[in-house]
């Protein structure tokens, strides 16, 4: 669910970058007092573990050819605690952006929020809530699966919301949301199962990894999975059916007045001046293609002429750029050819 640059407008990107940076800064400052220097190497290497873990794939049932793998945000939050877990996963997201170019530079803020901060804290909170009280294997399983599924759903839902706030969605908002939620329901469930299985393995082999958080034996049972699904269905059924009842299509939803959520409306109407300005800007400065709706051409001749001249401009721009690039490449090529015999 790496967000791309193209899904965001600059204000939203800047805002989320600021939130992510602020959040990370706060965590770093607080964690610094808790984490001794000897934890630093462990955190770094567990970040690298997340990368390596993504290579370990396994066959999914009923879908030959596809394979699942683990993301590990909730697992790390359980092992390291939410603060350190959030820092580790954030650094993974940053490296994915900088070294592997997965997710854009502007979208980094969104990606850190969606994939690191939300899953770590929400997942840890859900896991802790579910496992509060006396230890039982069933509770740990349910807690871990539920934490993975719900954390994944929330971060999947954040992607279309951020895109809708940016106002760049061509796809209707509800379609995008439902697709994201559907796909990530499956991913979250598998993540939950593998998390419980790994917890069970670790418990068996190296119980000292969890200092005192897992006193008994963890086993993944069918019952746990079923109960989790029932709980989750109830939550989703109750929550989404209210929301989906008369949802306006697409972007209007984010502009619509919502008396139940006064903050929501205020947040968007703040932006509306800027959005109008951007719309106006885009209408004026869009060079290619200069499209005219055939039905609504009023000053037809004038507009058509403007269209044609603008069309030529964009043509010139593209051809000029192509020629420039070719010239640069050729020059570099010739220079390198000249240099090679000497070296």
């Amino acid at each position: 669910m790496h967000m791309a640059n193209e899904l965001l407008s600059v204000p939203v990107a800047a805002g989320t970058l600021a939130i992510a940076a602020g959040g990370l800064g706060l965590i770093c400052r607080n964690v610094r007092q808790v984490i001794a220097a000897d934890k630093l190497a462990l955190m770094g290497i567990l970040g690298a573990f997340v990368f390596a873990a993504q290579m370990v794939n396994f066959q999914l049932p009923a879908m030959p050819g596809t394979s699942g793998h683990m993301v590990g945000a909730v697992l790390l939050a359980i092992i390291l605690g939410p603060h350190a877990g959030a820092i580790v996963i954030s650094s993974v997201v940053i490296i994915q952006c900088l070294i592997f170019q997965d997710g854009g530079l502007l979208a980094l803020g969104c990606n850190i929020i969606n994939m690191a901060l939300v899953p770590s804290y929400l997942g840890y909170f859900l896991y802790k809530t579910a496992t509060a009280g006396p230890f039982s294997s069933l509770r740990v399983s349910i807690g871990a699966v539920l934490a993975c599924v719900i954390a994944m759903q929330v971060s999947a839902a954040l992607v279309p919301i951020q895109a809708a706030l940016s106002g760049v969605l061509a796809v209707p908002f509800s379609t995008f949301l439902i697709t994201m939620l559907g796909v990530h329901l499956l991913i979250g469930l598998i993540e939950g199962l593998i998390t419980v299985a790994v917890l069970g393995y670790l418990q068996q082999v190296r119980p000292d990894v969890f200092v005192d958080s897992l006193p008994g034996k963890v086993r993944l049972s069918r019952k746990a999975v079923l109960i989790t699904l029932v709980i989750f269905t109830l939550v989703i059924g109750g929550g989404l059916s209210l929301l989906a009842s008369d949802m306006p299509d697409g972007l209007e939803w984010s502009y619509a007045e919502r008396p139940d959520q006064p903050d929501f409306e205020a947040a968007v109407s703040n932006d509306s001046a800027a959005i109008a300005a951007v719309d106006d800007f885009q209408a004026r400065y869009a060079p290619l293609p200069d499209y005219s709706r055939r039905s609504s051409a009023i000053g037809e001749t004038g507009e058509a002429q403007a269209d044609i001249s603008a069309g030529w401009t964009s043509f010139a721009g593209v051809v000029g750029s192509a020629v420039t690039m070719a010239a640069i490449w050729l020059t570099a090529w010739i220079l390198r050819k000249k240099q090679l015999p000497k070296a």
Partner: peptide, 20 residues
């Protein structure tokens, strides 16, 4: 950027390929 995050990123980058 906070120093803790920089150290974390440095370690991570150093060990990605080892663990892969």
């Amino acid at each position: 950027v906070p120093k803790l995050l920089i150290i974390q990123l440095g370690f991570l980058y150093r060990y990605i390929f080892v663990l892969i």
